[in-house]
């Protein structure tokens, strides 16, 4: 067993270092799906967060609690819900999206949107509390106010994006259900690791695990760098 693991380690490293085409294809698809989900979640989440931060309506407090709670949505439950929506007999079954990368993007978008919206809401609301009177005194109109808040919160908002990406890249439950882990089509790093480990093909699983951890470290390093740059440039 010991020997087998040692052997798995070295072959895993070989796979990564030699940029094995099968491994690279899995990495490429994973990144595309997660990036697509983050872009879609940003398009929905930033305006949603801004609206909740800047408007007053009945039930606002409750909606903030729900939004914050949704940050911890279990991926498998989201996967199940999207599966039911997109399955042949489901309401969106005619779209024929189940077991495609598009379905995976949809599921991950649902996972990531609350993270981006909730973090944006908190950031924008804090900044608004601070800026409100000063902007009123400068006679800045509603559109100008939103633009100012978004721009001055840009570093924190970028951090929210990276947090969302980290969540999407690392989750397995949603993509495995709606993507189906089809080789060369919907197989991502996380689903491949789950499958290869259960099959006993440890080199590929370990190789993908190394790449995934490297990506998570890079994303966190970026988040750190963004924060530092923000402190330096904006104070």
């Amino acid at each position: 067993m010991q020997e087998k693991l040692m052997h798995a380690d070295t072959s895993a490293l070989d796979l990564v270092l030699s940029a094995d085409p099968a491994l690279m294809e899995i990495v490429r698809l994973s990144l595309l799906v997660s990036l697509g989900a983050v872009v879609a979640a940003a398009v929905i989440g930033f305006p949603l967060g801004a609206v909740i931060a800047l408007t007053r309506y009945p039930g606002r407090e409750a909606s903030i609690v729900v939004l914050n709670a949704l940050m911890g949505l279990p991926p498998v439950v989201v996967g199940l819900a999207v599966y039911l929506l997109l399955s042949r007999s489901g309401p969106l079954g005619t779209w024929g999206l189940l077991f495609t990368p598009a379905a995976m993007v949809i599921a991950q978008t649902i996972l990531v949107t609350p993270i981006i919206a909730a973090l944006a809401r908190q950031t924008i609301e804090d900044l608004w509390t601070e800026y409100r009177e000063e902007l009123a005194a400068m006679n800045v109109g509603p559109i100008g106010r939103v633009a100012t808040l978004l721009w001055d919160a840009r570093f924190s908002l970028l951090t929210a994006l990276l947090a969302g990406f980290g969540r999407a890249a690392a989750e397995v439950g949603a993509v495995i259900i709606v993507g189906g882990n089809i080789d060369g089509f919907t197989r991502t790093m996380t689903t491949a690791i789950a499958l290869e480990t259960s099959k006993g093909d440890l080199p590929l699983a370990i190789g993908l695990g190394m790449v995934l951890i490297a990506i998570v470290i890079i994303v966190n390093a970026l988040a750190w760098g963004v924060r530092r740059a923000g402190e330096r440039l904006a104070g």
């Binding site: 800026y131 009177e133 000063e134 100012t148 001055d152 440039l233 904006a234 104070g235």
Partner: peptide
């Protein structure tokens, strides 16, 4: 125009 006792600095130069 008004200058508040603790003016808010925009996060810019």
């Amino acid at each position: 125009a008004i200058v508040f006792q603790r003016p808010v600095m925009l996060r810019r130069s």
